[in-house]
Design a protein around this nucleic acid. Structure first.
Lengths: 230, 230
DNA sequence: AAAATAAATTGACATATGTCAATCCGTTTT
DNA sequence: AAAACGGATTGACATATGTCAATTTATTTT
């Protein structure tokens, strides 16, 4: 964790899905009320169960959003990529984080006090709506996530995860998996051994290649088919 | 489905988590722009995939909210009980219902045009906030639901479902299950045969009794334990 | 570079779980 | 009341899947 202001709200806010609606006065207000932080891989950005004191504007890196389930298991509900605004689900509901956010690649982000954000939302309707739309996006992701959890055959879940990583997270096809096998296991709600095996089968069947976490999806359609048939 | 106005917004809005913030003029506005409908058990109130044209104020009955998954399976994400406001997830995002709502017991509800609702939200900030809080509640439910899906042992899922039904849905302990075994299966994401078997074991172990869908939870703590250990 | 540590893979095994089919029960229909 | 229907239960069975332990590979440390 490092502290050092290298960003400016004037610049970042343009890219933010929520803060892009702020007026100059408000931009200045968060500029004076933000904390800029860098997290290294593995570090916990927000811990489920702790008090919710800040909202987050994610500027750089890759982080995972996970739900800590019973018996020490944890389940990855999604990833955070720049630019993202994140308040945690249940912003209007209670004062606790439900989810844990952990840095996977080095992350740079700003924290803004909850009350400061709340104030601004009250006086800026456009932003309030953007906030709602942003929350909506999160729910829809959750619902999709839920669908994938309900895929019966585990091959389907891994197939889905690979497609998701390539398309939505790394945005390329031969991509370098910066997430661990354990993460891939938590993402699919499978034991890591199963993930290994299934990955191996995909390689054997020439659906993907993988060398040193460099994954290349050869037969996207086959993966899609595997994921769809369940 | 029957049409016949027997309710008044002036009365109902007092109980609504969202409409309770409306002023007289606005109450009058929805009074003139609402459709009152009665659905019989089994009827589809909203169908996933169809255009999202109205929001719903749920006045009476019991309905299930489900996600239609791959291969004709469907999964119950939750139930709707009066008084509930329901817009469907992703209200600000797109024009499609993601979830299907089906009446279990006879349901009476009002439909209000999306645009009418939108207008009112724009001019009434308090209501907008109530709407957000309401959405938040839905997300938190989803997250909890997700946790239960991830319970490893299936006994745990059934235990959790029984507790949920008794505590949150029927609000009593010896309760009459108005939902079918198939629904219970969809609620736990299990095949209905498994549900039957597990229920039978619970009865055998004297954790519950069940006669003609009259369920009595005898050992709540045991159920909780089964659900928690996963 | 060698040693130590952690991560990932593989193998073997028991069993929890899904599927199919047959039976049972309750409800409705004529 | 008998027949017909749908829902729920039970039984039998194959197998997909999780677990544990051992091995290999990769990564970090000294």
């Amino acid at each position: 964790m490092e502290f050092n202001k290298t960003l400016t709200c004037a610049h970042c806010s343009k890219e933010s899905p929520v803060f892009c609606f702020l007026n100059e006065r408000q931009i200045d207000h968060i500029e004076r009320n933000r904390i800029e932080v860098v997290f290294n891989p593995g570090e916990t950005i927000m811990k489920g169960g702790t008090p919710k004191t800040h909202v987050m504007s994610f500027y750089k890196g890759l982080a995972k959003v996970s739900l800590e389930g019973k018996g020490g298991r944890s389940y990855i509900l999604g990833f955070i990529r720049p630019q993202t605004f994140f308040s945690g689900p249940g912003f209007f509901f209670d004062e606790k984080h439900r989810l844990t956010i952990t840095a996977i690649e080095e992350c740079k982000l700003c924290l803004i006090e909850k009350d400061v954000f709340y104030e601004m939302m009250e006086e800026n309707f456009k932003m309030a709506f953007a906030f709602m739309e942003n929350s909506n996006r999160f729910i829809l992701n959750l619902i999709h996530k839920m669908e994938t959890f309900l895929i019966k055959h585990h091959h389907g879940r891994v197939a889905d995860a690979l497609l998701h990583l390539s398309k939505d997270i790394y945005h390329k096809n031969p991509f370098t998996m910066t997430i661990s096998r354990k993460d891939l296991a938590d993402l699919t709600a499978l034991p890591k051994e199963s993930v290994s095996r299934i990955l191996h089968e995909f390689i054997k069947d020439q659906i993907i290649t993988m060398e040193n976490n460099e994954v290349h999806i050869l037969k996207e359609d086959t993966l899609k088919h595997i994921s769809h048939k369940g």
